[in-house]
Write a protein that binds this DNA or RNA. Structure first.
Lengths: 161, 161
DNA sequence: GAATGGGTACTCGGATATAACTTGTCCGAGTCTCTTAGG
DNA sequence: CCTAAGAGACTCGGACAAGTTATATCCGAGTACCCATTC
């Protein structure tokens, strides 16, 4: 089990977008330059965020991306789900039905207990992600990141305007 | 993010091994027949379980696998970790250091807040898996599975002896 | 009849191909801006 | 001077390859059993 590195990219991009003045946007190219990642591939992930309503995409010359709603309303779960897809990590293949001691399908009404346990753990995981808002992440970072770097980021945002 | 289907195979195999009389073993071939899965590939996963101390492998003619300890001492976390590997799902690439506003490495002492949040969620997930013992799964299944199927499984275990 | 040595059959274990998915790239559709020509 | 039309440039969006991991397979090493031979 391994998450796509696109998740890390997406979350970081959202924190940068959160620093923008209202209505301003930032293009995939600018974000790719900011993080030194392949532009086209980052664009793919931003596209996923856009399709899931995490960010808004503005087409046209001065277009780009901006957060679709307030940082307090965006959670890590939203971003992870957008990048990784909605399906559960554990896919029950119902192998209990197969083999010599398997029974007809009608005998299996409830989901397999193993699958239920795995899904319950996944729910706990996603709930934990849902409790972490983008606003909380940014507030934490504000205390930890040096003023120097925050200034450097502000300067970069200006020149990228 | 997607778990290997080997996880499902491994857990089901453990429940079958738990039904064996003490000291009896079951080979990879028998388990593969029971679940109608490719024998060689299942063997690979059983090998992983063996290396992580979940099951014991007995070589030789009447050899095979048996649980390494009591079902109450084996958790879903043990099995998932054995199959999927020990590393975290989220691998922080430290992209915060990169790009035009990145700072020298010494400026980043604590792990990235994003990574901390992701890892905290993973810990919750693994803790949930660790609370689900094999004994609990089997006890639940005993109430749900029909007596007919339990008898079929017992018969199969006899003829596989 | 009992013991022993060897052959055989069955087991696990790791090294080896194939398939699927993640990663990475490219080009087309659409939109805003700037320029320029005309009124 | 103001307006408006058109070209241009920059944006997102989906379609198209390459690399890596998961899937599937095979063959070798080792062990216990079975049987024949011998005492």
């Amino acid at each position: 089990m391994r998450l796509s590195e696109g998740v890390e990219w997406a979350v970081h991009c959202c924190t940068v977008l959160a620093a923008l003045p209202p209505e301003r946007t930032l293009g995939a190219g600018a974000l790719a330059e900011f993080f030194e990642v392949p532009k086209a591939y980052l664009a793919k992930h931003l596209q996923a965020l856009s399709q899931h309503g995490v960010v808004d995409a503005v087409p046209g010359r001065n277009g780009g991306y901006r957060l679709a709603r307030a940082t307090a309303k965006i959670t890590l779960r939203d971003i992870v789900t957008a990048i990784e897809g909605p399906g559960p990590c554990f896919r029950c293949q119902e192998i209990r039905r197969r083999g010599p001691s398997g029974q007809p399908k009608r005998c299996y009404t409830a989901p397999c207990g193993i699958a239920r346990a795995m899904w319950a753990a996944e729910k706990v995981y996603l709930d934990a992600l849902a409790r972490t808002t983008l606003a909380k992440l940014i507030a934490e970072a504000a205390h930890e990141v040096s003023h120097e770097q925050q200034a450097a980021m502000a300067r970069w945002l200006e020149q990228a305007a």
